[in-house]
Amino acid sequence: MSEALLKISESVNDGICVITPSGDIDAHTAPQFKESIEKNIAAGNIRIIFDFSSLNYISSAGIGLLNAALNSLKGKGGKMSIACASPSVHDTLELMYFTKKVPVRKDIDSAKKDI
């Protein structure tokens, strides 16, 4: 049995939900990421920071989920931000236009100001 490619931790403090995926988000692991996002939004956590400090890789499967989350949150009056992306993850977000839609901040404290 191979090691899990994606682990996700979640915390909610002062009304802010921080979702921290560790590993790779690709076409195989995207359903795990989707479940985490949808579960939190369904629970009323509509101020979300994605902490990408432990994310090694994201493909369009992950960007699509972030985009769906963004629109879902907008519909509920919520907001999202992204923090601590590595240079390669930031480059992918930029290549796929997502940095024009959601701020990518250097740390969690800066991201908190967005939401």
Partner: peptide
């Protein structure tokens, strides 16, 4: 891309991204 993001679409970016790279 504007329509893609405005409608909250999920999927359909893969071919476009590899053609650009």
């Amino acid at each position: 891309m504007d329509s893609y993001f405005d409608t909250g679409k999920n999927g359909g970016l893969g071919v476009d991204i590899y053609k650009k790279i």
